[in-house]
Amino acid sequence: MSGATDGIVRASGAGSRFLRILLFALLILFALYYLLPFFVMLATSLKTLDEIRTGSLISLPSSLNLQPWVEAWSGACVGVRCDGLQPYFWNSVLIAIPGVAISTFLGAIAGYALTKWRFRGANIIFALMLFGAFIPFQVVLLPMARTLGFLGIAGTLAGLILVHVVYGLAFTTLFFRNFFVSVPDALVHAAKLDGAGFFAIFFRILVPMAIPTFGITVIWQFTQIWNDFLFGVAFTVGDSNPVTVALNNVVNTSTGVKQYNVDMAAAIIAALPTLLVYVVAGRYFLRGLAAGAVKG
């Protein structure tokens, strides 16, 4: 990222120094603005209920009280079941991992076929898939429910995985198509002359080149699937709910005292994996977004 622009001569003098200070002041202000909600959540999750009631929203907790986290993870009540978020968290993992893997793999193959093995109508198929990326969630709810019922997987994890794979395919295909279209056809020609077929070219030549694209696709799909609420609430029931739906049920419970600290801890737990994926694969995300801007 850096390096290429380091040597560019900048304007100097009092005026431009003032502008730079102003720029950084603004950036810090906005950074604080964005961090504040997370700070409030974290601080609240570590306070006792008494402290929440008496203290201010942005005050630091007087002591580290981990009880709300334990409660959120394994004790909070979702409906009548009081096992915390834990079982639903694992549901989400069981949905997200195959959902991400299958949709990414299929998107990669589809993007490859659409660009490197062009066939009559490839452009139309791609246009239709692109259209799929713009279909709002709620439009597909009813037809999808009918389809899942027909397939006999309504209300199961497998059903929700299928929904995410189908819905995600438009995006993953788009990502991979845009990457593979920048790979010269001559490379594929060379591999064909070397005796490689459809899958050999894909796995041996193109997949290693597409690692950054895999990175951004995995982040995108994981975030989409993990954070999804609508499909989760529509296509699963009770024990097969993903963590987002369970979180809603914990927070929106109408019985007992409102436990803000447990709610906050639960919300952070539910958001943690996407944060983790972004930290681990984030550099690919940036690299992937910048890819194609400049030919390496």
Binding site: A186, L187, A190, A191, L193, D194, G195, A196, I205
Partner: peptide, 29 residues
Amino acid sequence: PPKDRDIAMVFQSYSLYPTKSVRRNITFG
């Protein structure tokens, strides 16, 4: 098909496999 024609080709843009070493580029066929 190309692979069964007993030919080899040198391309304008070289078309070397970017993720493979020179040795693996040469041995891929």
